[in-house]
Computed example of a mutant assay.
Amino acid sequence: MSRVGIDDNENLSSVRASMEGRSELIATQTECTFAFTTEAGWPAGVVMSYLFTRDRFWLTAAAGRAHVRAAVRDPRVSLVISNAGTSLPGRRMVSIRGKATVHDEASVRTWFYPKFSRHLAPGDPDAFARLLDSPERVVLEVEPVRIAVSHDSTKMPGDGRGGQLR
């Protein structure tokens, strides 16, 4: 019988991140890869900071950026979040498929900028909010539709690097 992480590294369904593990990762991390399709049909991605609130991912960018134009053209996007750079042990990741909505309304910017700034720049959130509040900036809302893939190496012997489970 094969043992995941010892002599079987092919079927990793047993090491998917749990709902609690995914929630912890999303709450701890502040960056994701925002994946989209270019006008030419190529897959592409950019690293973006996010805020998860109201059961949605919220991000911001200048309106003319390729990923913003792509989200307007085709709202199907993916967010990939890993625990790289956090204090979470192991190697964890989640890939989330979602539907993006691009907001340019003042009402969205008014609640989003202060909350986003407190989340990412707690030392001086007001300065960050002022920096974000530019005429061509939009807010992207991503409603999760499906967890496409997830992984939690702490469920594997030797943290997914072989060896015995601790």
Rank of each mutant, 00 (worst) to 15 (best):
S150M: 08
T86G: 03
L131G: 07
T154M: 05
C32G: 10
L51H: 04
L79V: 04
D126N: 12
V46K: 06
S2A: 11
P114L: 05
L131V: 05
G98P: 06
H119I: 03
V80Y: 06
D159A: 01
V80Q: 09
P122V: 01
D152A: 01
V139A: 12
T33G: 06
G90M: 00
T38Y: 03
E143P: 03
E141G: 11
V46S: 11
M1R: 06
V139F: 11
N11I: 02
F116A: 01
L25C: 05
A121G: 05
A127V: 08
G21T: 08
I6M: 04
K155Y: 01
L131N: 10
V94R: 03
I81Q: 04
Q164N: 09
N11F: 05
E31R: 06
D124I: 04
A62H: 15
A121N: 10
R54E: 15
L51Q: 04
T60Y: 07
L131M: 13
G21R: 03
R146H: 14
R91H: 09
T33S: 12
D8W: 08
V68H: 11
I96L: 08
E143R: 15
R22Y: 02
V46W: 01
V138H: 14
I147W: 13
V80C: 10
H67R: 05
A44E: 14
A61T: 15
M1A: 08
L12A: 02
R118F: 02
D74T: 13
D126T: 13
P125W: 13
R109I: 07
A121V: 04
L88I: 07
A61S: 15
I147D: 10
V77K: 05
L165N: 00
S134T: 13
A71C: 06
V15D: 05
G162Q: 12
G162L: 07
P114D: 07
A66T: 14
L120E: 10
W111I: 06
S13L: 03
P89L: 00
L131I: 03
A100W: 15
T37P: 01
R166N: 04
G64C: 11
S78E: 15
H151W: 14
V142K: 13
L88M: 14
E39S: 13
S107V: 09
E20R: 01
V139K: 10
T110Q: 14
V72N: 07
D126W: 04
R56G: 02
R69D: 13
D152V: 00
P75R: 11
Q29H: 02
V149P: 00
V145F: 01
I26D: 12
E136T: 15
D133M: 09
F112P: 10
E136L: 14
V138N: 12
A106Y: 04
V4N: 05
S49A: 08
R16E: 02
P43K: 11
L140F: 11
S14I: 02
F112Q: 12
G90Q: 00
L12Q: 02
F34H: 09
K99Q: 15
V142Y: 08
R109W: 05
L88Y: 05
V138C: 14
R109P: 08
M19C: 02
R3I: 09
G123Q: 08
L59P: 12
L51N: 02
S82Q: 03
E20F: 01
P144C: 12
D133A: 13
P75C: 10
